[in-house]
Nucleic acid binder design. Structure first.
Lengths: 208, 208
DNA sequence: GTAGCATCTGAAGAATCCTTCAGTTTTGGA
DNA sequence: TCCAAAACTGAAGGATTCTTCAGATGCTAC
């Protein structure tokens, strides 16, 4: 809610190799505790125990619990954004139908790669700096998609930024619904087809 | 996570008029504390204080904090579902383009009517019974939309249930993005137009 | 091999929180 | 008017949690 930017930053950078491993263990422990216990029981003690270290070590790298959770969320979201930016670069100049395909496949792949992680972090994204963090990362992706749309040979959009925003956000809900309920690969495939249809129809209908 | 159905139920029904008022005050207090303090600081004491009553009173109606939060969330979601079911009834037999309009307008109206409430409850929906509760309510809406789609004179869908699910979930993301960032009414209107375009294009493209 | 920095440990203080319950106040009907 | 049931009160027990810090341990460069 308030400006918690500074105290949400990590505390120090790893110097030796083992500390990098510690941070890694910490991050995966967060995911595990989150899925097994839920956000409210995702406590520093439990995280440390799961990571096989002492509570004190946690505070060596993060000034408080929220900073740790924010770091894990940020890494996750950054990964998604990286993947999407790559997709956008690789799809420049394609017809919009192909862009739709690429965007859907890229987003689904990125989110479903570590389904557990994605699922677990939804709760974190709904609190504290989570909102702002997620919003910032989505802006990144939106910007990339906006640029991408401008390169389409078979379409020109009146307001590419808004089109990009709608297109992206339209994927969020359906993909999350897969993650919440557990879907079979077969169902996922059908759903991917439907999402491609959704985006393609929207993009083709929306060109000026 | 685990089966907490029973202890999440309210504890007793109001008999006198004042107790109904108490419950009402409790619910609005939850929303207020939620928006002002966030989920983790949305404590029984703070809620009671905000509602102008003693902590004990809270436990007269709800067996625990989670049950109270679940009740508030349930009422909110039920309201959305009611509105959407009404929209579906009122739109039977219309061409799919009109259905798309009605669905978008109905959903946006329902969610934005109490924007603060919607915003506040996203956090609650991401924890505990929130998942299941939200899933259940969305199933209700999906069912209504599925039935609605079958009445379209200008389209027949191969898998109406999936089409309904995609269409609905596609609205979730964009509308939430409005709620998170604060949007001007002008922007909301433009966005509504885009969502109508999105749904219309999808439904018209998806008819068998 | 050893000095010195990097990491780790984990008990303990301080702060909340959830929930209960014995007792008080209010209400509505007889 | 009066009383039994309904509501409400709020201090206190029991349980967690977050965070710190003084000391132990591991690593690496010299």
């Amino acid at each position: 809610m308030t400006a918690l930017a500074t105290p949400l930053r990590p505390r120090k950078q790893p110097v030796q190799a083992r500390s990098a491993a510690t941070i890694e263990a910490l991050h995966t422990a967060v995911i595990q505790v989150l899925t097994r216990e839920g956000l409210s029981r995702c406590t520093t003690t439990r995280i440390a125990e799961r990571a096989g270290m002492s509570v004190g070590s946690v505070y060596q790298y993060y000034p408080n619990r929220d900073a740790l959770l924010a770091a894990v969320l940020e890494r996750h979201l950054s990964g998604i954004a990286d993947a999407m930016e790559r997709v956008c670069l690789d799809s420049r100049g394609l017809p919009v139908a192909r862009m739709a395909e690429a965007l859907v496949e890229g987003y689904m792949a990125a989110k479903l790669r570590d389904a557990g992680e994605s699922r677990a972090l939804y709760a974190v994204a709904g609190e504290r700096g989570g909102f702002e963090l997620a919003a910032r990362v989505y802006k990144r992706i939106e910007a990339a998609v906006t640029v991408l749309l401008a390169t389409a040979p078979d379409a020109r959009f009146e307001d590419p930024a808004m089109t990009a925003s709608i297109a992206l956000n339209a994927l969020v809900g359906p993909v999350r619904s897969i993650l919440d309920g557990q879907a079979t690969p077969a169902f996922e495939a059908r759903l991917q087809g439907q999402l491609v249809l959704l985006l393609t129809a929207y993009l083709e209908a929306g060109r000026a």
